[in-house]
Amino acid sequence: MKNKTFTTGVIGTLVTILCCATPILNILLGSVGLASITGYLDYVLIPALAIFLTLAIFSYNKSSKSNCKNDSCCSVD
């Protein structure tokens, strides 16, 4: 993957989904003694997921359009 913004968006999305969908943060925070914070995780993780998804989609669309301008296969004659 050449585009660093797309890579960042995809990795951020995967990490956020991993923390949202699985109880990894609950287990980690509980073992450290910060289990009282787990009620507020949705206020942070859901917006982070939306931001990373938007970043990945935006950078993918931007790279697709720039690649299409440089290729002759995309031209309509």
Rank of each mutant, 00 (worst) to 15 (best):
F58Q: 03
D71K: 11
D71T: 12
I46G: 01
P47M: 10
Y43I: 10
S59A: 15
L49E: 07
C68T: 06
Y40S: 07
F52I: 00
V44Q: 03
Y40P: 00
S64D: 12
C68I: 06
D71V: 02
A56N: 05
N61G: 15
Y40F: 15
L45D: 08
S64I: 09
L55M: 12
F52T: 06
D71H: 08
A56T: 05
Y43M: 13
L41D: 01
S59Y: 06
N70F: 03
S59L: 05
S66A: 14
L49W: 01
T54C: 09
D42M: 10
Y40L: 14
K65W: 05
C68R: 12
Y43N: 12
S63Y: 01
A48I: 07
D42C: 06
S64E: 14
V44I: 15
S63Q: 13
L45N: 07
P47A: 09
L41F: 10
N70Y: 03
C68W: 03
T54L: 14
T54S: 11
Y43W: 13
T54Y: 11
F58P: 00
K69Y: 12
Y40K: 12
K62M: 09
Y40M: 13
A48W: 09
F58S: 05
K69E: 15
A56W: 02
N67W: 01
S66R: 04
I57C: 10
N67E: 10
S64W: 08
A50V: 15
I57H: 04
I57K: 11
S64F: 10
I51Q: 04
N61V: 03
L53E: 01
D71A: 15
Y40A: 09
L49M: 13
K62P: 01
K69F: 11
P47W: 08
I46C: 03
Y43V: 09
I57G: 04
A56E: 11
L45E: 10
A48Y: 06
D71P: 00
L53G: 09
I51L: 15
I46V: 15
I46L: 13
S59P: 04
F52R: 00
N70Q: 12
Y40N: 05
Y40T: 01
K65I: 14
C68K: 13
L41A: 11
D71Q: 11
K69M: 13
D42I: 12
A56C: 05
L55Q: 02
K69A: 15
L55S: 02
I57W: 07
I46M: 10
K62G: 02
I57Q: 03
S64A: 14
L45V: 03
P47F: 10
L53T: 13
N61D: 02
T54F: 12
K69T: 13
L41N: 11
L55F: 04
A56P: 06
N67H: 03
V44P: 04
Y60T: 08
K69P: 01
K65H: 08
F52M: 07
F52D: 00
F52Y: 04
N67F: 03
Y60D: 01
I57P: 02
T54A: 14
K62Y: 06
S66I: 09
Y60S: 05
L49D: 07
F52H: 02
N67Q: 08
K62H: 08
F52W: 02
I51S: 09
D71L: 13
A56S: 14
A50Y: 09
A48E: 05
I57N: 02
L45Y: 01
Y43R: 05
L41I: 03
N61Y: 07
S64H: 05
